[in-house]
Structure formats: C-alpha cells, structure tokens
Nucleic acid binder design. Sequence first.
DNA 1: AGTTCATAAT
Length: 604
Amino acid sequence: MSKQMQISVPIRAPSWVSTRRIFQQKLQDLHKCTNLNHIKQVHAQILKQNLHQDPYVAPKLISAFSLSQQMALAIYVFKQIPDPNVHLYNTFIRACVQNSLSLLAFETFFEMQRNGLFADNFTYPFLLKACNGQSWLPLVKMIHNHLEKYGFFQDLFVPNSLIDSYCKCGLLGVKSAMRLFMAMDERDVVSWNSMIRGLLKVGELSEARKLFDEMPMKDAVSWNTILDGYVKAGEMNKAFGLFESMPERNVVSWSTMVSGYCKAGDMEMARMLFDRMPVKNLVSWTIIVSGYAVKGLAKDAIRSFEQMEEAGLKPDDGTVISILASCAESGLLGLGKRVHTSIERIRYKCSVNVSNALIDMYAKCGQVDRALSVFNGMLKKDLVSWNCMLQGLAMHGHGEKALQHFSRMRQEGFRPDKVTLVAVLCACVHAGFVDKGIQYFNNMERDYGIVPHIEHYGCMVDLLGRGGRLTEAFRFVQSMPLEPNVVIWGTLLGACRLHNAVGLAEEVLDYLVKLEPSDPGNYSLLSNIFASVGDWSNVANVRLQMKNFGIQKPSGASSIEVDDEVHEFTVFDKSHPKSDKIYRMINRLGLDLKRVHVVPKVYL
DNA sequence: AGTTCATAAT
C-alpha cells in the first residue's frame, strides 16, 4: 500500500454501518414476508452491499426463506457465516424444524456444541419439536438431561413439553413420561392432560381413566381427552354416558362424539348429534362430510359439503385434505371433483399438500390423467407428490411410465424413500417386470440406503407369485429375515389361486390360519382354488371347516358410481329394479368375450 | 427468537 493512498481515504465508520441503516426499514418485516421475489431482491441487494454476514441481517433472511419454504436458500445463507452466534444457530435450527428437516436441526445443534457454544432456553423447545413424529426417544432423553443439568426446569412449560415429546415415542416413551410426571413436585392441568393423552395413545384406557379420576382440577380439555379415549376404543355407549355427564360441552366434545358415530358407521346417530350441535366449525363439517364419504354415501356427502359452504365456511387445507382422503378411500370421484372446483374458486393456487391429496384422490379413483395434470401443474413438488403420482401410475398398470417417472424424479434430485420403493416394486408387479423388480429389491439398500421393510418383501412375494415362480416365492418367504405376516401369506395364497397351485395353497393356508384363524377370506380363497380345479369334495370340506369354526363369509360386494350415487352389488344380485336388463347385458358381454377367446372364471 | 394438552389430516 502506498502512503498516498492511506492519506486520501478519510477516516469514517465502516461503510456497512450507513448502508445497514438504509436496509433497516426493509429488514424490519422481512422475516414475516412471504413474497419470494421480494425476499430474493433484498437478498441480492444485501449480497451486493456485502451485508450477508451481519448478525442483524442474516437471521432475518434465514427466517424469511424458511417461511417461504426455501430451505436451500436458507442453508446457503447460513453456510456463508464463518462464526455463527447462538442467536443465529437458534434461528437456523428453528428454520429446519419449520421445514421438517429434523435431522439437520440436530446436526446443527451438535455442530454448535462442537464450536463451544451452549444451547439456551430458546434452543431446546425447537429441538423437542424436531423430535415430533420421529420417535427419537434417545434424543428426547438427551434433551431431558441437558435441561436438568443446566437448570432450565423453573417453568412448568419445560417438563410439560418433555412429557408430550416422550409420549410421542411409543410405549417406552410413555413410561419415561410417567416417571417424570411422578417425580414432578408441581403439576398443572396441562401436565395431567398430556400424561392422560400419552396413556391413551398406547391404548392404556383404564390407566388413563384412573389418572383422570385422580385429577384435582379438570378443564374442558381433560374431559374431551378422556371422551376421545372411549371413542377411539369404539366404546360409544360409555362415551355417550360420559358426554351426558360432562359439566359443559364445547364444539370439540360434540365433534368427538359425531366422529365416533361416523367411525362406528352409525350415520343416523352422527347426523342427529350434528344437527343438535349449538356451534359448528370447519372441523365438525369436515367430520360429517368425510363420514358420509367413507361410507360411500356420495349424495349425502355432497349435500353436506354444499351446506357447509352455504353456512359461509370456507374449507381450509385441513378440511380439503381430509375430505379428499375419504374420497380416495371409497372412490367418490364426484365429491372429489366437487371439492376440486371449490378449491379453485377460493384459491388462486393450492398448497403442496392439497395438490398431493388431489393427485392421490384422482389416482385412487382411476383418473390417472387428471392426477397427472394436477401433478404437472404444480410449481413446487415434494417427495409426497412424486410418490403419490408414482403409486397412481403403478397401481393402474402403467409400469413403463411409472419407471420413467421414477428416473425423472431422481434426475430432479429427489431421494427415494421407502414409499417410493414400494411403488417402484408395485409397478414391476403390475407390468410383469419380474427380473427388473428383483434387481431393484436386491440393490435398494446399496443404491438408496433403504433397508427393505415388510411391505417390500410383500411386493417381492407378489412379483414372484404372479409371475408364476411359486416355489421361488415360497422359499423367499421362508428365508425372509422378518417374520412373515398375514399380508405376506395372503399374497402368496392369492398367487396360488391365480396359478391353481392346490398343494402349495393348502400349505400356505396352514400358516395363515395360525396367524388369523377366524378370517373368512382365507378359507374362501382356498375354496375357490379347489373349485377352479373342479375338486368339489374339497370345496365342501373347506365350507364345513368354516361352519365348524363358526365363520361366515361376508359376501364380497362391488360398487359403481353413477350420477353421484353409489350402487353396490353382489354375486347373483337381483335386487336392482333394472336387474333383467343388466343381466341381459352381462350375457351379451360374456358372448363377446367368448368370441375373442376369453373365458371368464366364476368364483363362489 | 417462543411455548406446551382436546376434534378432521396427505
């Protein structure tokens, strides 16, 4: 540096102090801003001014990117900071949790510790949230230890959150929660409620009831929690008794009861309670619409949905997703479309989750093209979107297309999860790509780091079985590292029926009956196998065996939706007013099929 | 920079 140069530069505050003041206004509300373009603009200006490492600026940017679900950019901003302080770490951990990057949240936490920084009372609640839905019992325990060690236990909020997080980790977690709960010298109503909820989650209804009776102070949540316990256990009579004896009933109490009757299939009772509700909210309407939808009562479901809109309620994401899921379950395309148009009227574009629900609904209702058009119209897709679409293609036998979809998905940088691989294997099953499927299965751990789950083994049994490689399938089941379940044996039995493998079928049924002795479906399958090879004496034997066990076969029914009405029919059903015409049509179809040498099989 | 528990849910 020359002497002249030093002299010519006047002494003043570093340039960023003044430019920062200019940004102050812009940054004020940036962390609440959802307009991505605006954030990106500000980001560009900040980079230009070299302010991106400023301890005031960086957290605002990270929060803003996190809120508009741009974690890639948030990570980019965070990584450019050489020595983040605790505040910055907290901001970034919160961003990870908000975007369900739980693993990254913990990695960041450990990095923070390696850098010699201590987590504070802001960090731990975020970390607990990251554990939600992950069943990370050891990590919850670790957080528990830290909180105790550093004396963060003054506020009841801390142990209460711990109880809740513990209870989300299954039976062992609930036990830990109980130990903590017992050791607490002060408890508030939330502590009790959380503990009761936890016990109910692992099916300990009587334990929960004991605790409920012991409670010194019960609020509306306590009553509703235990009420839901009885409802979930299917004990509607006890639930109703409790409901009647409640000191006060709010929307949640009423909705819980309505949902219980819907699940029990008692739509009359559900509707009666629903009509008597003093206040109805979005959740209550969702429950009744879904209730009708799951039962296939398309007309009632659509009417209720319209009533909801007439009442001035606008369905939100939860409502829409829940109703669409019910449509997918029972194939109510009519209601699904109705909901779709309603969303398009209200919103300019759907959220990712809503679009995913739409894809799933269209695919499950057999409308792969519509599913594809929703999928292609999405600006931002997540793993669930790709998985739903993949499943839809696979389910309807578009094996080739599904595998193309799978490779496109990897090209766009998505990491396949276990659901993806089930769909891929399913695609191979339905397209008859036996060897390709075996290859995917054998390499899934190496290529994608996914250890095969029971579902993947099920796909393999289906793949080999349908492909006619029955002995191979049987040997595969016997050599599985996991205990074969009902689905596995059932799949194999189905394959036996497909290929009339009577001997193997009997062997498989032995295993199946051991696991599920009273399931009529198993016997029907075997009886059908005997029937298909003309072994009528054995058909009679199986029927007799069923009778001895007191098992009745429910007649399987098919259904078809015409003009928003679902028609259900069974074998030899003559109950329809136009039954004559229908059977004349069936006979004609049978003749047409014979002409092209297709012989339909008739099962009992 | 932020709080916990109850009804629908991809």
